[in-house]
Each structure stands twice: as structure tokens, then as C-alpha cells.
Design a protein around this nucleic acid. Structure first.
Lengths: 253, 253
DNA sequence: CGCAGAGTTGATACCAGTCAACAAAAGTGG
DNA sequence: CCACTTTTGTTGACTGGTATCAACTCTGCG
């Protein structure tokens, strides 16, 4: 975040073929010349900054989006005017599928950090997908991954204990970072405590206390948004078991 | 559930063109001869009975399913071996999309009642969808509806008060029944209190108490699984507001 | 008739939401 | 670069809602 990245234009010009996400994103598993057809319709936009919106509630479905880096959240607004966080989106994860049913977005997508985004015009995507079997298959697969993340989230929200939800959240995030080739044990949270709280259906104070508790128990180390996972197995255990109040492990494992 | 329905075979032989769900299901909005192509691949199975499974966790993705009548639940099994209810599925709602990502089911689909089911072999569906633009579009739309229901569910689970979740659950179910052309104010719940509890992330006693409370407040009338909604506006209000303990309305609205 | 499963109701303990004060970090402008 | 403000995160005290354990009722069924 120092200089204005004068070389970014070059990076933006590079197509799917050179993208580090190629194997995770829409192009995964399709041939070279078919890749070109996809590449032709993908628009790469200049970087967005934190707080920018890709689309708003009620907007027509014009495109789906994939972050190349950075992170997004999707939110709805409740009757009382407060945000509910539906999901967090890391690079390679499709954003905008919520408009599939009604051609109209039910939520809005907000950048949590500065980010580079690929925009894929939806009608062109579906017509190319109809002609390129591999792309259709991959599109369905990526949609399926999105459904899977939603179901994981539901499973987390069904957990009754705040500690379980928080542990599950951190564990899931860790896996997603690792899947991107980044460290799964040391990372910076792109979202605020409040975002996490609204995502997990908890009060933000409860999230804060949960982090503190995990730190006291030697499972993680937190400073603000920097998180290091010290005991992944224990974190995973806490995410699934209702916290058998084990005699508070001190020092080492 | 009296006589074994000797005429059912005739009903089963009828294709999509005569199905009451035509406008809600995959065939919606596609032409007559294209409908025939879809009809050719759809397999109609003999009725399943309550407790039967369409697929189990780990099964390969061979088909997606749509109930013509009856109801299903999809569940996962937690590490501790207890069921988590991911969703309830009414007629016309696609079942089996959870396997899209990994070609393998993450959950199992269990019949809550006796039901007639259409089975759509998945590979044939995608190849026909590639050739029939209207079907591809409709497939994506139906998938989108499923995503939308999941997001509604997440929004319900993020509500902190049990009463809100229960009211939202009943209200949502009512809308889905109405959408099917059935009564939205009087219906029989296809699922047990325990299923509802595992769906809403509550203890089953809390669900029971919630129903009782709604009845005391004159919002609904319950006897076992029979529900009548007396004050839809109030039910909807309770689903969104954290229960401003209004002076317990008695008698009429 | 008695039994099993489903649902209701009651008493109690505890977790988490709320209100409030404080601490730390990140902007902002001189 | 430093004072100021604003935002974000932490911690504490208190209360209330919900889980839990338990007893009881109701329904349908063999």
C-alpha cells in the first residue's frame, strides 16, 4: 500500500491464462482456445477500494464477479436498517449468484480491502457456457462451491455456543486461505469484529471475548486483525464440541 | 394413506406437460417440443415413504430430484453423530445441488411424508440444458431460488431471539405453501418439532414453547402438526422485530 | 389396554446480550 | 510531526433468554 502501483495496468492486462487463480476460478480445466473465448468476455476493472460496492440491492443481474485479490462481504439490510452479513468472499469465489433467481440482486457486495476484480457479463457467460461443455461444467461446479460455503455457514449458525461458532469461523477461514496458497496459520482478518458478529449472529462484544478466550487458552494469538493459529487441532475440536471445560491449558500443548 | 392408490400409475405416467408444477419446476418457460426433450430424460419413480432416502452422504452425483408432492429434509451428521437439518424441500424445489461442487453429496435427503419424486439424471440434464437455452436459463434460475432459500435461512439463523426465528420459519413456510397454490394460512407441518429445532438451531422445548406463545398471543392456532395462522401481519412483524413485549393481546385482533 | 413416540410444561443454571467505560489504533488537520 | 478526533476493539457488571433435566400428557397403534 505504498506507491500507486504503476505496473498494475500490466497485471490487469494479463488474462485468465496467467492468473494465479486459474486453477480455482472459472477457467479451471478447460482447454487453451476455449480459455480464450472466456478471456474475451472477462472485463478487468481498475482496483476498487474498501467500502466500494460491486452492486446494490435491487440492481439487475448484469455480471458476476471474482476477486483476484482482496476480500468482499455480501450483506442485506434488515427491516430495522441494520446490516446482516451473508458471506465473505476471498479471491476465486464467485460473487453475485444471489441474483440468479430473479435477475435482481438481493444483497450488496462491499469491498473490505482494496481489490482487483474480474467482471464477467452474465449473458455472455451463459451463452459461452452453452457452447463450451467444460465451462458449463465448471460454472456449475463453482456455483456448487458457493452453495457448499453457504451450507457450511448455516451449520455454523446452528451451533448454539458462541465459542463453537467463533472457532468454526476461524477454522473455515484458515482453510480457505490455505486453499489459496496463502498461510493457513497466520493471516490478517479483512473484516471488522462487527462484521464477524453480524456474520455469526452474535454481539460484537461476544466475538471479542471469544477471541480473547481462545488466546488465553493458547489456541490462537491475536493482535487486532492479525491472527496466528497455534493449535489447529484444538481449534477444530472446539468448532465441533461444546467446550468441555478442560482445565485451561497454559504454556505449551 | 388409506387405499394403495391404484390410479397412481396413471398419474406417474403423465409427463411434465401435465404436471401441476410445470410453471414452478424445470420446464417453466420452455417450448413444447423442447419440453419433450426434457420429459424424455425425467424418470418418475414409485412413491417413497416417510424415512426413505434419495441419497446419502458420499453418494456420487447421479441425479437431481424434485418432489411432485410430499416433503423432504436434507441433513448432515455432525461429528457427535447428531442430525443437523439444512433445509426442507417442498414440491418443485430442487434437491441434490449440494453435490455440484465435488460430484459427491454432502448431505442426505430424507422423505418426511410419502411422496412422488421426479429423478433427473444429471449428465443428461446438463447436456440438454446446453442445447436448449431456455432450459439452461431455467436451471440456473431454479438453482438461484435454492441459493435464495439458503440465504433466507441464514438470515433467520442470525436472528438472536428464538421467537423471531420461529415466527420467520412459519411465515416463510406459509409463503412457500401459498406459492404452490395451497393454503398459506392453514396447513399441516410435514416435520417434527425436533426437525424444526435442528433446523433453527434451537432446543426442541424452545420450539414447542414458541408455538405455545404464538398461540397464547392469538397469532396462530396449533394442534400438534396442524397450524392455522390467524394474524399474518403480526406473524411477519414478530419475525423481524425483537418482540416488544406488547400487552399480550387477548381475544380478537 | 398398554406402549412408544411426539409434544407440552415446569424448575433451574448459565451463557450471551446489553449498557457502559475504557484502551488502542487509525485518520485528520494544523 | 504532533495534537485532536473518530473508529475499532477490549473489558466489566448485570440481566434475561434459552438450554437442560425432568415429569407429565396426548396421540396413534399393535
Amino acid at each position: 500500500m505504498a506507491e500507486p502501483n504503476v505496473l498494475d495496468l500490466n497485471r490487469l492486462r494479463r488474462g485468465c491464462a496467467h492468473c494465479s487463480l486459474q486453477q480455482l476460478c472459472l477457467p479451471a480445466g478447460i482447454g487453451a482456445d476455449e480459455l480464450q473465448r472466456l478471456d474475451d468476455i472477462v472485463r478487468r476493472r481498475r482496483p476498487v477500494t474498501a467500502g466500494d460496492r460491486l452492486f446494490r440491492i435491487g440492481d439487475p443481474l448484469t455480471a458476476v464477479y471474482v476477486a483476484r485479490d482482496g476480500a468482499f462481504k455480501t450483506v442485506t439490510i434488515t427491516e430495522e436498517g441494520e446490516e446482516q452479513v451473508l458471506g465473505f468472499h476471498l479471491p476465486g469465489e464467485l460473487i453475485g449468484l444471489d441474483a440468479l433467481a430473479a435477475d435482481q440482486h438481493r444483497c450488496e457486495a462491499i469491498a473490505l480491502t482494496t481489490a482487483n476484480v474480474c467482471e464477467v457479463p452474465f449473458d455472455q457467460l451463459s451463452s459461452v457456457a452453452a457452447q463450451v461443455p467444460g465451462l458449463q461444467q465448471q460454472l456449475l461446479r463453482v456455483i456448487g462451491q458457493s452453495v457448499g460455503r453457504d451450507q457450511d455457514h448455516m451449520a455454523v449458525l446452528q451451533r448454539r455456543q458462541a465459542g463453537e461458532r467463533i472457532a468454526a469461523f476461524l477454522h473455515g477461514l484458515s482453510e480457505r486461505f490455505r486453499h489459496l496458497g496463502q498461510s493457513g496459520t497466520q493471516f490478517r482478518l479483512p473484516m471488522s469484529r462487527e462484521d464477524i458478529a453480524r456474520y455469526l449472529g452474535l454481539a460484537l462484544e461476544t466475538v471479542s471475548r471469544g477471541f480473547t478466550r481462545l488466546q488465553e487458552d493458547g489456541v490462537i494469538a491475536v493482535t487486532g486483525r492479525r491472527v496466528e493459529i497455534l493449535d489447529m487441532a484444538e481449534l477444530n475440536r472446539l468448532a465441533h464440541a461444546p467446550e468441555t471445560d478442560e482445565p485451561r491449558r497454559r504454556g505449551r500443548a
